[in-house]
Design a protein around this nucleic acid. Structure first.
Length: 268
DNA sequence: AGTATAACCTGTCTGC
DNA sequence: TGCAGACAGGTTATAC
């Protein structure tokens, strides 16, 4: 469910809540699916009693940076971090001063990795990630160099090893903004088109963060507040509704098993 | 090596 | 009301 703007919003929210606080205890309720590279014992031994230095983010991964160790969490499709327990609580982080964070994840796709501070860069999950939007790596030059691919451009945008953080919603919205058809081969983009897409991705992500992400169904901030970017959708979920540019109907196709929404008239 | 497909799970909605 | 089928903000083993 969450893409970069949602994860970034959660990061900001959690930073306010727990940065600087010491972890008193933790409880894992879904070891089998959730813990990818450590046992519950290892996890507890590493971070219980430690102070949370900072909340960071890499792509769609949340990084709980403790003094010596980092807890790397991916929310996948249905993961949420809440200040109250919910129906599918899989992990409980109990900080001092009664600040408790509940990881709720109906579909159990969520993934947690434990890493030492020094070895964080070597974590395979993070190593595979491509250019980070808003970082200095995100340059037109780097963006273009990775477009050398025969993938359809929509699938290319979803490929986290190219650019990281874009998911199904923002891929559709960015392609509309850049007026590029989703089925175009990535390597076929002209220099004008690649520049438009490069800028559209940043613009869409930036605006979505300003609106605190998109709440269609289950996503919410830890505080329980909803995101508001869904009010700005130009194409996503708008099958047969009128295009904001040309008033023609929005189309839907399937690419790699995911729905793509776009305007046939405006995007080519 | 790069790319497409199936699989991982549960919940919700639509149509018969 | 019940039930089958489609679909959902994502990634990853597996198979070409």
């Amino acid at each position: 469910m969450p893409e970069l703007p949602e994860v970034e919003t959660i990061r900001q929210d959690l930073e306010q809540e727990i940065a600087g606080k010491t972890l008193r205890d933790l409880e894992v309720k879904e070891r089998l699916h959730l813990l990818k590279n450590c046992s519950e014992r290892e996890l507890k031994r590493s971070v219980v009693g430690q102070r949370l230095i900072a909340m960071k983010r890499r792509g769609k991964y949340l990084l709980f940076c403790f003094e010596k160790f980092v807890v790397v969490l991916h929310l996948r499709m249905s993961g949420r971090l809440l200040l109250e327990p919910a129906k599918h609580t899989r992990l409980i982080l109990e900080f001092e001063k009664n600040k408790t964070i509940y990881f709720d994840d109906a579909r159990r796709f969520g993934a947690l990795y434990l890493s030492s501070q020094e070895e964080l860069e070597k974590l395979p999950a993070l190593q595979k990630l491509g250019i980070e939007p808003f970082s200095k790596e995100y340059s037109l030059r780097n963006f273009r160099s990775r477009l050398n691919s025969r993938q359809e451009i929509k699938r290319w945008l979803l490929d986290q090893s190219k650019v990281t953080g874009v998911g199904n919603i923002y891929a559709c919205e960015a392609l509309f903004e850049a007026r590029i058809g989703p089925e175009r081969e990535a390597s076929s983009l002209s220099s004008q088109e690649s520049k438009r897409l490069f800028e559209a991705v940043l613009q869409i992500l930036r605006r979505a963060i300003e609106f605190k992400g998109t709440s269609i169904e289950s996503y919410r901030m830890p505080s329980g507040e909803l995101g508001n970017f869904q009010k700005n959708f130009k194409v996503y979920g708008r099958l047969k509704e009128p295009c904001h540019r040309c008033h023609g109907p929005i189309s839907r196709i399937t690419q790699g098993g995911r729905s793509t929404y776009f305007c046939r008239a405006c995007q080519s």
